[in-house]
Amino acid sequence: MTGSSRLAYQYVVLRCVPRVDREEFVNVGVVVYCHATDFLDVAWHVDRDRLAAFDPTLDLDQVCEALAFVEGVCAGDERGGAAATAPISQRFGFVKAPRSTVLQPGPVHGGTTTDPARQLEHLLEKLVS
């Protein structure tokens, strides 16, 4: 691929919502999907101190397990259960579907990039870290 080839991609920010009733959240991950290259991946970072400040009773290991599940869905491996066996576009659809759990996807956004993997790292740094 040449350096000037721009690829369309979509992404969702994964939010940890310690207490749904308070509608507060902390961004903990980003999922990037690029149809043209069959790229689907997640990058995440859990700031345990920050999340504990929102809710000291939050099970942070459970948050990390939920993010590992998303990793499995994206990678198409056993960590993602049955969802990981679907075609890549359906796996992204699964990941971006709204849920009322502690880990929730935000709205879908899009853009163009020459390198989806590098874009994922950029988004993680910009939106999560």
Rank of each mutant, 00 (worst) to 15 (best):
E24S: 11
C16K: 01
V42H: 05
S5M: 15
V20P: 01
M1H: 11
F39M: 12
V31Q: 02
P56I: 07
V26T: 10
P56L: 09
H45C: 10
D59R: 10
G29T: 07
M1V: 09
Q10A: 07
D49W: 00
R19E: 10
D55E: 11
A53I: 11
Y11G: 02
V32C: 10
S4M: 04
D55Q: 07
D59F: 04
A36F: 00
W44P: 05
Y9V: 06
V20F: 08
H35Y: 05
V32S: 07
M1W: 07
T2Q: 11
L60N: 05
G29E: 04
W44K: 06
F39A: 09
V31E: 02
E24I: 04
S5C: 12
L40P: 03
V26C: 12
D41Q: 15
V26A: 14
D49P: 00
V32A: 10
F54T: 00
A43Q: 14
T57N: 06
D21E: 13
Y33G: 00
D49C: 07
T57R: 11
L58K: 03
W44L: 02
L40Q: 08
V12H: 01
L60F: 07
R50Y: 08
D41E: 15
H35S: 13
V20T: 07
F54L: 13
C34L: 05
V46D: 05
C34G: 04
Q10Y: 04
P18M: 04
V28N: 08
R22S: 07
N27V: 00
V42Q: 11
F39D: 09
T37M: 07
A43Y: 01
F54H: 14
